[in-house]
Design a protein around this nucleic acid. Sequence first.
DNA 1: CTAATATCAGGACAACTGATATAT
DNA 2: CATATATCAGTTTTCCTGATATTA
Lengths: 149, 149
Amino acid sequence: MNLPPPPPSELAFQVADALRGIVRTLKRRLREQAPTGDLSPSQTAVLLRLESDGPATTSALARAEGMRPQSMAPIIAALERLGFLHGQPDPDDGRQTLHSLTPACKAWLAEGRAARQDWLSRRLQQQLSAAELGQLEQAIALLRRLTTD
Amino acid sequence: MNLPPPPPSELAFQVADALRGIVRTLKRRLREQAPTGDLSPSQTAVLLRLESDGPATTSALARAEGMRPQSMAPIIAALERLGFLHGQPDPDDGRQTLHSLTPACKAWLAEGRAARQDWLSRRLQQQLSAAELGQLEQAIALLRRLTTD
DNA sequence: CTAATATCAGGACAACTGATATAT
DNA sequence: CATATATCAGTTTTCCTGATATTA
């Protein structure tokens, strides 16, 4: 049996409120920097999943996204038609088809990430002094402590 | 005609990279603290819109969300059935029906916001010293400078 | 009479469920 | 035979377009 945790201090409450606001705003501004290219949310999720986890089968992608394989199939087919994916039959298991990002898709994803990175870098450079950048660097280390453990 | 802006410094680039990562992670962790209650994205958008901008008509909501009034109508009808909204005919304009959040819905929205706020406050209190909280407070002021102007 | 609001009717698309063929 | 992958077919949901009644 645990004792209830102590209530947060007034300062912690104020900082939390301000932090929630700035996180939401920054997230939106970052998103504005790179157009999604008229892909559906499902399609975007598949591309990001393949980029981070590597090639996968239709069923594996469906499981990862909480969908049925029958629903994942047309999403993949559309992405293949757009030239973002290409499927290759698994040499060991004849049932499976392994889908990978095409080089063009990898380049396009990297481009979007670079656009966001570029906007934020320039923004930091323009609006903050070197000393303030250092302050921010230390604060980011503090923020990381909130999401680990 | 403008000269191209100077390229960002190495430090700005590193801070931008770290900041993008921590914003994404924090956003996700905050989202995990309050369940969405099985509402569709459109329904959630309508509730948040009404909360921030006050009562509105079907057409006004449709315009705000980039939808047709015919598509907005069933969304509102579903929210009314769930007890989140209640409509009242405009006394001045007999064509319009003004939809408002019910007190129960306002309480539910506030509850979700409070859950996120509570999680973050406690997390700050537990993981950071008072001095570090002060550092973070100053850093948030710096971040605000990135999104204004 | 024109403009705006709401609603009714039917179509397109994306997800679902159920069933089937093939390979392990 | 039991399991896993992929796919075919039908259904539901959600948003769309088009048309109509009512009110300003």
